[in-house]
């Protein structure tokens, strides 16, 4: 497989580079290869967008419990909790 063919088809590697680029500095070579691939690949562009959305929703998931429907503990559990201090 030629160089460009490899660059254009390595979705797997590109997505991992894109994830890393949010936290680390990539080498110039990595950066260019990632940009070229992303320019031509709608699937990976798509992954990038969804990845950001996952970050956003996961942060909310762990920070804010009030936006979720409350779940009640069972009465049986509450009774057991009281029992342990009798």
């Amino acid at each position: 497989m030629g160089y460009f063919s490899r660059i254009l088809n390595n979705c797997n590697e590109t997505c991992i580079l894109s994830l890393r680029s949010k936290e680390e500095k990539l080498s110039l070579k990595q950066k260019i290869e990632m940009k070229i691939h992303l320019r031509f690949c709608t699937c990976c562009q798509n992954f990038e967008k969804q990845s950001d959305k996952i970050d956003e929703s996961m942060k909310a998931f762990f920070e804010n419990v009030d936006i979720k429907p409350p779940i009640k503990a069972s009465d049986d559990f509450k009774a057991r909790m009281k029992e342990q201090f009798k």
Partner: peptide
């Protein structure tokens, strides 16, 4: 060539309206 095999058009949540991701339904 080992490219993504998923359909690109399946993209409902990244196109969702602002605030949907933190809505009760989505969470």
């Amino acid at each position: 060539y080992g490219r993504w095999s998923e359909k690109v058009e399946d993209n409902y949540f990244s196109k969702a309206a602002d605030g949907y991701l933190i809505s009760k339904e989505f969470q």
